[in-house]
Nucleic acid binder design. Sequence first.
DNA 1: GGCTTTTTCATGCCGATGCATCGAAAGACC
DNA 2: GGTCTTTCGATGCATCGGCATGAAAAAGCC
Lengths: 146, 146
Amino acid sequence: MAQPAATTLLVWTRLLHAADLAGQHCADALRNVGLPPPEWYDVLLALERGGAQRPRDLQAALGKEQYALSRLVDRMVKARLLARTPCPTDARGHTLTLTIEGLAMRAAMWPVYAEAIERALGARVDEEDRAALARLLAPLAEPLGA
Amino acid sequence: MAQPAATTLLVWTRLLHAADLAGQHCADALRNVGLPPPEWYDVLLALERGGAQRPRDLQAALGKEQYALSRLVDRMVKARLLARTPCPTDARGHTLTLTIEGLAMRAAMWPVYAEAIERALGARVDEEDRAALARLLAPLAEPLGA
DNA sequence: GGCTTTTTCATGCCGATGCATCGAAAGACC
DNA sequence: GGTCTTTCGATGCATCGGCATGAAAAAGCC
């Protein structure tokens, strides 16, 4: 059995705790003003940047499970932020497009989201440390090899 | 509106992604061998280290919501890993104690958990970078001020 | 003591997630 | 073309989490 080093365990607890705090803070900030959760923002942004996309592309881009994305899209379609249109080249799937309301929602969410990120991260770590963190976290944000 | 710096956004995405990957990897490792999820380990460890404790103490120590801990304890009691005994000094609550099986379960989980942590973290960052990460993450693992 | 407020823990309800599976279309192979 | 395998997306079922509330004991206050 591989016994992790003390620093490994320290990084472990702090990484999970920090991510939980930051994520929770953002989710709360959005909820407190009656806006949808962060994951909705990610979908809206991906579609705005990348144009119409199919569910499986979004799934890969966002790193979500297939069923999770399927139901997330369901909710967002019900909320009139997305529209499903038949896919011309593959009758199994469909393409997802932003509605006007979806575009407006992303714009409305960003200031709140940005402010929360700034408070949770930017205001607590100076530029030099942020650069160091970004560099050190890079390998950990890559998928683990088999 | 506070526009976060580019490094802030980079840290943001990598922090959340890294934590998600690492956490998922550990949860999967335990599940793949038929063991309970990491949160059970945290409870077992806290009780083993700190002796009998009341739910509200565990709640504070683990940073969980009250109802979440209440139901988590429920499941672990059903699984015979914990026992609730009446609290002598406060009839509202009870003290939680590890059963023999609970003690054994923690011991059984640790090698798998440790191995997963090592693979997800220790093996991917050298000692110097781990120390730097631990230092940089420290402020972010502290609760945000009001 | 008698009253109000606070703390401690559980739970009903609903929405979200994980898992397995399914139907249907596409692609591969002959 | 015909058949088998793979990909795409949805969904039934059970579990889990969030929110609000409830019940009961403790603590504070007069």
